[in-house]
Every structure is written in structure tokens, then in C-alpha cells.
Design a protein around this nucleic acid. Sequence first.
DNA 1: TATAAAGCTTCCCATGATGGTAAGGTCAAG
DNA 2: CTTGACCTTACCATCATGGGAAGCTTTATA
Lengths: 134, 134
Amino acid sequence: MNISSAATATGVSAKMIRYYEEIGLIGPVARTESGYRVYAENDVHLLRFVRRARDLGFSIDQIGKLIALWQDRDRASAEVKALALEHIGELRAKITELDAMARTLEHLAANCHGDGRPDCPILEDIAGGSSKTG
Amino acid sequence: MNISSAATATGVSAKMIRYYEEIGLIGPVARTESGYRVYAENDVHLLRFVRRARDLGFSIDQIGKLIALWQDRDRASAEVKALALEHIGELRAKITELDAMARTLEHLAANCHGDGRPDCPILEDIAGGSSKTG
DNA sequence: TATAAAGCTTCCCATGATGGTAAGGTCAAG
DNA sequence: CTTGACCTTACCATCATGGGAAGCTTTATA
């Protein structure tokens, strides 16, 4: 299977497949005599694993660890769980941060006429740097 | 006021102040004869504005528009509000996306023993690519 | 005053994950 | 045997930020 078939089969672009190989996330793959990459079932499984982990928001670095655990028959599930919980913590922290921004803006927007007049609590807040919204 | 005083006064690093100038977000600032940047009160206000807008998650591009509106006495607050609502939409969409990831992982982690055994629904899900969590 | 320390300037590199493009080799179909 | 589709590597761009080097200026100190 060539790289574009592997890309179609896994949802990982050919560009990213080469990148993952370059940075060592996945090992070097087999090549034809002329240098074309050749993907076997195992390689496709691995690429699907990476794709799914990316969809769950894991960083490349975390995915490297997940792959190592996945391929280690003697892993302790505690290690996997710890990695997942760490990532959940990052996600929840980011959500909290974004939600604070959104709530602040929602308060400001609720108090903005949104008509032809120039008065605008949104700009006043950003200019003033205060956090009060009502 | 030199660049590092301006940085301290606004919470924008000297590095970023130069960058904002370079990309045209803020206009070129006054210079001493020897080429050192000199910041007046107005410049400091503008930098604080940028800083606050960044804290609210606006992109550089959006901040450029906010600055233009801020400095336009004849602006319509509707334009500012539209910009804010657009950004709120982006924030809420991102939050929804991250929350879906977090909830999926929380389900998987809840079903993972997290002990010395290798069995792990987290890895099984990522490897299997299915979305079922229970 | 001479010298050292601190601060300024520009320029280049790196991040993380992804996309784009260009130049050149390869393969399959007509 | 040509054409077109596909592969390879190598470089550039994104977005916002930080790091560092080389060289000039200003300030502080002996």
C-alpha cells in the first residue's frame, strides 16, 4: 500500500504521515527499490491509533508515550490512566480559561447597544483594563 | 519611556512590542537620535488595550479591527458588538470541542482499573477507533 | 575619565501541527 | 513512448511567542 492509500485508509494526510516518520513518532517504514514508502496492515493500525489520539487532543509527545504503552504487553494500566488524567486536566484548564473569556465578553456584549451609536462598554472595558462588567 | 519600561507598564514583553510594531498592529513609535524607541502615554494606552484584548483571546487580526474602531469616534457600537459576538462564537465552539474530548476521556478513564494490570479501555478505544465508552 | 554593566538595536532560529509548492524521479495506461 | 498521476525531498508559511548573538549606546562605578 502506498502513502496516499494509507492516508485515505487512516485519515492521516500523506504530509503528516511523512512528518510523523521524520520526527520519529512512528518508525521508518518499508520502501520499494525506487524509494516509495510501503505500508502494511500494522503500519495502518498505528496510523489510525495516532489519528484517534490526535482527535482526543493528545500532543505528539503524549502520543509517543501512548504508543509505547500500547505496544508494551507488560504495561500497567495505571500508567495509561495517569497520562489520560493529565490530559483531561489540561483540557479542563483550557476550557476554564476560554469560558472565563467568553463569559466576560458575553456580559460586555449584553450591555452594548449594538446600534449606530459609538458608546460601547466592550471597548471601554478593553481600553480601561478593568474586569467589571456591569 | 524606553521599551522595557513600557513593557513593565503594560504587561506586554519588549519582544512582543517590537513584533506588534513590525507587523503593523501598532504604528511606528518615536525614536531617540541613536534609534532607541520612546513610548509616550498614548503608546502605553494602546499597548494596554492590545494586552487586554489578547487576554480576552482575540487574534491579532481581530485586535487590529478593534483598535481601528476604538480610535474611530464615529464608530457604530454594532460593529464592535458583531466582532465580539463572532469571537464568543469561536470560543464557545472551541469549548464544545474540548469538552467532548474531555468527556470521552473521562468515561474511558472511569472504566480503567488504573492498577498493575495491562488491560486498559483507554488504549482499546484509541486502538479500536470506536467511540463507545461503556 | 576609563571601563564595565546593563540596555537597546536588528537579525536569525525555534516552537507545534499542519498545509502548500517546486523540482525531479517513477509507474501505469494509452 | 508519451502523458498524467503519483512519489520523493526540500523549502516556505502559518500564529504568537521566546531565545540568543553581534554590535551599538547609555549608565554606573571605580
